[in-house]
Design a binder for these strands. Structure first.
Lengths: 203, 203
DNA sequence: TATACAATTAGATAATTAACTAATTAGATG
DNA sequence: CATCTAATTAGTTAATTATCTAATTGTATA
């Protein structure tokens, strides 16, 4: 489930030692011994915390001889931070019963205008809006054209997005970041939850 | 310390029950009894979790007769999510030894151009940049003109910001959000950590 | 004042977890 | 192969915490 992943991210950051570990790693690569020393904890404890951070995909590891070097996984550190907010506000709106066409007029009008303004008449995306609520509308518009339940390789997904905009890499990340899709073992799939199809956008 | 506050925010979100509680509250006001029922937990447990959320300023409460109604504190829910990322990356750069003028040329140039482009020749702020790294530069520029250690009332802070831009409320929030200042009992103060004065901006 | 209702506090229990030490594994090198 | 080094695993302990039930507090209202 979605929720557990998000909670897990926050569990990983819900400890001073781990947070300090991440701060150290933001400065660059460090191995276990260095971390243990700088944090004044035993190597075993480093292993313990590294496991938690790894579970939440917040770090990467590389081995050189006996030594394991840790680095930050910038991408997940940053994307996780928006995930909770997205989850909270999106689900709330989705939960509203009896909708379908229940979207308020105001939102409907915003949606129409965003679609009109950010897509060309040929259906290409001009650019990704900077403002969150508009960005989410655009992403949803794209994502609606993906097949539910189908598994996409990264290459396939790139090709799909490429139809609309050349910067497929950024948009692909946004799909994940805002939980329209999820990724497992390099395979991408639509978020089966329909929630994102019926929320109210953020303030 | 800064760190503990951020960790506390994540602790608050590091539990499925609390996360579900927030999702419910995003939908609107709910009292304790309703929450207990919808979450299938006892009223006592609701109280327990509410305390944690309150500590992290994620909810507000209002009493009517016997009943206490909870609502989301949108502002803190959202601002907290950026706090960890800010902390991690900012501190990392601050830790780099032997700086002072150690900012790389590239960043120096960016900074100069941002200051030039977003401030008028009279020193007024044209508008707040949308792009994070530029926004942070602008905020820092403002904040550097505050007195270290001095306590500001909200009114005083508004007046200060008002010299530069009419939308003092938004900018005041950004100060908190990005941890240039902190607030305690309606009193604002500069973040005593000098870190923010010497970081590298986010990717 | 007595009664009703909602929420909190007290107190208990079970689960989780951060930390340590000691033993083990994994990899490289003389 | 013997040895060194770095990290992991095992096993323990103490602290934290999610949850419950039962008792208590706080706020109306008959």
């Amino acid at each position: 489930m979605q929720l557990d992943k998000v909670v897990n991210y926050h569990k990983a950051l819900a400890d001073t030692t781990r947070m300090r570990m991440l701060i150290l790693l933001a400065d660059g690569e460090h191995n276990g011994g260095e971390l243990a020393e700088k944090l004044c904890i035993s190597p075993a404890t480093v292993t313990h915390h590294a496991a938690k951070l790894r579970e939440a995909s917040l770090i990467n590891e590389r081995r050189d001889k006996n030594t394991i070097y840790f680095t930050l996984n910038d991408y997940f550190v940053k994307s996780g931070s928006t995930a909770a907010v997205d989850l909270i506000y999106r689900n709330a709106a989705g939960v509203k019963e009896g909708d379908g066409d229940g979207m308020e007029d105001k939102n409907k009008r915003l949606k129409d205008s965003v679609v009109k303004n950010f897509f060309t008449s040929e259906g290409k995306l001009k650019h990704v809006p900077a403002q969150l609520k508009k960005k989410l509308i655009v992403l949803e518009e794209l994502v609606l054209q993906l097949e539910k339940g189908r598994k996409y390789t990264e290459r396939e997904l790139n090709a799909f997005i490429g139809q609309f905009h050349e910067d497929y890499a950024t948009i692909r990340r946004e799909f994940i970041m805002h939980q329209f899709m999820f990724r497992e073992n390099e395979i991408y799939e639509l978020n089966p939850s329909e929630l994102w199809a019926k929320w109210e956008v953020l303030s």
